[in-house]
Simulated assay, not measured.
Amino acid sequence: MKKKKLLQKLSDYFDMGKRKQCEQKSCLKKIIRELREKEHKLSTKLQNEESEIKRKRLKKESQIIHAQRLKGLKRLKALRCDE
């Protein structure tokens, strides 16, 4: 093997933490996207729902999903700052 290739392998070996962070970022992005879609679906259901009990349940569920999405965004931002 040439020096460049050996140095690259060595660099990859020491940068395993970065690889793990990249995997976490991609996973977080996927989860955040899914949460955003679910939140939009719930908001449309909430607008169309007539029953007050179901509206309260949907609103509470939507608030929980929104909070989880914000936590994910905060974590994603923290991962980007660590680079």
Results as ranks from 00 to 15, higher is better:
L28H: 13
R69V: 08
K18C: 02
A78N: 14
D82L: 05
I32A: 11
K74S: 09
H40V: 10
E83K: 15
L70G: 06
K25R: 00
G17Y: 08
H40M: 11
R75D: 10
C27G: 00
K77Y: 01
K9R: 11
K41P: 00
Q68I: 12
D15V: 12
R36P: 02
G72Q: 07
I53P: 01
L42M: 08
K9H: 10
K29L: 06
Q21D: 05
R57G: 12
K74T: 09
Q63D: 15
E23C: 00
S62W: 13
Q8S: 07
K18Y: 04
Q24D: 01
I32R: 06
R19K: 14
R75E: 10
Q47M: 08
K41M: 09
D12K: 01
K4H: 06
L7E: 09
I31W: 01
L6K: 10
I65A: 02
Q24I: 02
L70I: 12
I53D: 12
A78R: 14
T44S: 06
L7N: 11
E50P: 04
E83D: 15
D12Q: 03
K74F: 07
I64W: 10
K2H: 12
R57F: 09
Q68A: 14
R19H: 09
R36T: 12
L28A: 14
R36G: 07
I32N: 09
S43V: 04
M1I: 15
K71A: 02
G17H: 06
D82R: 08
K77F: 05
D12L: 03
K18V: 04
K59I: 02
L73E: 13
R69F: 06
C27V: 04
E23K: 00
R19E: 03
R57E: 15
R75S: 11
G17S: 12
K4V: 05
S26A: 05
K45E: 14
Q21I: 04
E61Y: 15
K74I: 12
K20E: 08
E61A: 15
K25Y: 00
S26Y: 02
I53W: 01
K9N: 10
I32Y: 05
E52N: 08
R19L: 08
K4D: 08
C22V: 09
K9I: 10
E83V: 15
C22L: 03
Q68C: 13
L10V: 05
E37G: 10
L76W: 03
E37W: 03
R19G: 11
S62Q: 15
L70R: 04
H66Q: 13
K56D: 15
K60T: 14
I32E: 04
S62G: 06
E34T: 12
Q47L: 13
K59T: 08
R57W: 13
E39L: 06
K71W: 01
T44K: 07
L42Q: 11
E37N: 12
Q63P: 14
K2Y: 11
K41Y: 08
K38A: 11
R80E: 07
S51N: 14
Q63N: 15
L79P: 05
E23S: 00
C81Y: 02
R80T: 09
K74G: 07
Q68H: 11
Y13G: 01
I64T: 15
L76K: 01
I65K: 05
I64K: 14
K41S: 06
